[in-house]
Simulated assay, not measured.
Amino acid sequence: MIGYVTVGVSNMDKAKAFYSELLADLGAKVLMDMGRIAFIGSTMDAPMLSVCIPYDENDPSPGNGNMIAINPGSKEKVDALYLKAIALGASSEGEPGQRVPDVFYGAYIRDPDGNKIAFYEFG
Rank of each mutant, 00 (worst) to 15 (best):
L31I: 09
D56A: 08
S61H: 04
E76S: 14
Y55H: 12
M34L: 15
S61G: 00
N64F: 02
L26H: 03
I86P: 12
L81D: 01
L31G: 13
P72C: 02
A87F: 09
L31T: 05
P62K: 10
L81P: 10
D59P: 03
N66A: 14
A28D: 11
A24G: 04
F39G: 08
N64Q: 07
V30H: 04
S74Y: 11
A24P: 11
D33R: 15
V30K: 02
D45K: 11
T43K: 07
D25Y: 00
L83K: 13
A46S: 13
A69E: 04
I86G: 09
G63V: 09
G35C: 10
N66K: 04
P47K: 01
S42L: 04
A46M: 10
A24T: 06
L49N: 03
G65Q: 07
I37S: 08
A80H: 08
N64D: 07
A28Y: 15
L26F: 02
N66E: 07
V51M: 11
L49Y: 02
K75R: 15
P60T: 02
K84H: 06
I68G: 02
V78T: 07
D56Q: 05
P62N: 07
S50N: 03
L26D: 03
A46P: 12
A85S: 13
I53V: 14
A69T: 11
S50Y: 03
M44W: 00
M32N: 13
L83S: 11
G27Q: 10
E57A: 10
A46W: 01
G73L: 06
A80V: 03
R36V: 10
D25F: 01
A28Q: 05
D59V: 00
M67N: 06
I68C: 04
L83F: 00
F39P: 05
A46R: 11
I86A: 01
P72G: 00
A85D: 07
F39W: 14
A38P: 13
A85N: 04
I68V: 15
D25E: 15
A28I: 01
D79T: 08
D45E: 15
Y82L: 09
K29C: 11
L83R: 11
S50A: 15
V30S: 05
A24Y: 08
K29M: 14
S42P: 07
D45Q: 14
E76V: 13
G73I: 12
M48E: 10
A38K: 12
N71M: 12
S42G: 09
K29H: 15
